[in-house]
């Protein structure tokens, strides 16, 4: 099985540690993951802000690069949801039909092979115990696209529960949006900040040391607020916790 990593532009540029963690974790589980160099961005920001023509171009770019692989693993719930939910819709728009006539077939081929990290672990590799060690009190924010777009359900929880030393505490109001929403955070800054303040309040109630999620965009938003408030709570991507081992644990 040839497995490719789609790192996403945000992780590639701002959170390389998450990418390194995915590589470490997959290698430990016997997967020789590849990194196709030509990859860039899934197009989520463009499409969700109202620039679908860019989205069509990036979707076409994506399907070309990943066509040859059996599975594509992505450490981002919202990018996976973008690919799974929006690519098929983009592919049938008039703009796509005119400029990228083959996109529909390409999307039909590639999209079913794209997995969020926890889907790949639980559904494809069929593991929940990945041999991780992380002796900390952790709470998990499911993020909207992982929860309502991908229906990840209890996969992340099952993975975290198997991590040795980890104490998982439930997050009140977990299913509520943190207020990130891409350009929403800037366009509707006041509402976004108010939503995040409530999310942060709930995180603080748990007494957790670490807030975990499967999407660094949301974590950048919540983490940025936690840091501004000098809360002492740090944020970590699910991959980074699952990659941690005794000796290597932070």
């Amino acid at each position: 099985m040839r497995v490719a990593l789609f790192i996403t532009c945000v992780n590639d540029t701002l959170f390389p540690g998450t990418g390194r963690a995915v590589v470490t974790l997959l290698r430990r589980l016997g997967v020789d993951v590849e990194f196709p160099q030509a990859q860039t961005c899934c197009g989520q920001m463009h499409v969700n802000t109202g620039y679908p023509a860019e989205g069509v171009r990036l979707a076409s770019h994506f399907t070309e690069i990943f066509a040859e692989y059996d599975a594509v693993v992505t450490p981002s719930g919202s990018c996976t949801a973008m690919i799974r939910e929006q690519y098929p819709r983009l592919a049938v728009t008039a703009g796509a039909a005119a400029k990228q006539p083959g996109l529909r077939e390409a999307v039909g081929e590639v999209v079913p092979k794209v997995y969020d990290l926890s889907e790949f672990l639980v559904d494809v590799l069929e593991v929940t115990d990945v041999g991780a060690y992380f002796p900390h009190r952790v709470t998990y924010h499911p993020t909207c696209h992982s929860l309502r777009g991908l229906h990840l359900g209890d996969r992340p929880r099952r993975l975290l529960e198997q991590v040795r030393g980890l104490e998982l505490v439930p997050l009140p109001g977990a299913e509520e949006c943190c207020g990130f929403g891409g350009t929403f955070a800037v366009k509707n800054r006041d509402i976004s900040a108010a939503m995040c303040a409530d999310k942060v309040g709930n995180v603080m109630k748990t007494g957790a040391e670490v807030l975990c999620a499967a999407d660094n965009s949301c974590l950048m938003h919540i983490g940025g607020t936690l840091s501004r408030q000098k809360s002492g709570v740090r944020v970590m991507h699910l991959a980074e916790i699952l990659a941690a081992t005794e000796g290597g644990a932070r």
């Binding site: 969700n48 207020g179 929403g181 891409g182 350009t183 929403f184 509707n188």
Partner: peptide, 11 residues
């Protein structure tokens, strides 16, 4: 149309 974080709770 921008008054939403696209969280999907409405859908």
């Amino acid at each position: 149309p921008f008054a939403s974080s696209l969280c999907g709770a409405c859908y």
